[in-house]
Simulated assay, not measured.
Amino acid sequence: MSPLSEETIEKKLLHFPDWEYYDNALHAEFEFDNFKDCFSAMSRIAFECEAQNHHPEWKNVYNMLTISLSTHSAKGVTEKDFKLAEAIEAIVEVQE
Rank of each mutant, 00 (worst) to 15 (best):
M64E: 11
K12W: 03
H54V: 05
L13N: 06
H54A: 05
Y22K: 11
K36G: 11
F30H: 02
E6T: 15
L69S: 03
L84R: 00
T8C: 07
E29C: 09
S40I: 13
N63W: 01
A25N: 04
F16E: 10
Y21W: 07
E96D: 11
M42N: 04
D18I: 06
G76K: 05
L14C: 03
L69N: 02
Q52C: 07
S70R: 11
F30L: 04
R44N: 08
N60W: 02
C38L: 05
S70P: 07
N24W: 02
N53Q: 13
F39I: 14
E20Q: 11
E31I: 11
E48R: 08
K83E: 15
E20G: 09
C49E: 01
P17A: 07
E86L: 15
K75W: 06
G76Q: 05
A41P: 00
K83Y: 11
A74D: 07
P56W: 02
E31V: 09
A51T: 12
E6R: 14
F39Q: 07
L84K: 00
H27V: 06
I91M: 09
C38K: 05
A85D: 04
N24L: 06
V77W: 02
A51R: 14
Q95T: 13
P56H: 04
E6A: 15
E48P: 04
W58K: 01
E20I: 11
H55A: 12
Y62E: 12
A87K: 08
M42D: 05
A90Q: 08
L69K: 00
S68I: 08
S40C: 12
A74W: 07
Y62C: 13
F82D: 06
L84A: 01
T71E: 01
K59L: 11
H15R: 15
I67L: 03
M42S: 07
E89D: 12
F35K: 09
F32V: 00
P17V: 08
H15N: 15
L65W: 03
E29D: 08
E20T: 15
I9W: 03
S40K: 11
L4F: 01
I9K: 03
L4P: 01
H55F: 10
A51G: 11
A28D: 01
H27A: 03
F30A: 05
E20N: 12
Q52I: 06
F30G: 03
N34D: 15
I88A: 06
H27Q: 04
Y62G: 13
F16T: 13
V92W: 04
L84E: 00
R44L: 10
Y21E: 06
I45Y: 07
A74F: 07
L84S: 01
G76N: 06
E6I: 15
K75L: 08
L14H: 02
T71G: 03
K83V: 14
D37T: 12
M64G: 09
L13W: 03
E29P: 05
C49N: 02
E57H: 01
L13T: 07
E29A: 09
T78S: 13
A51Q: 13
S70F: 10
R44F: 04
A85I: 06
E6G: 11
K36T: 13
A51N: 14
I91D: 08
E31Q: 07
D37N: 14
A90N: 11
D37K: 13
M1G: 10
H55I: 10
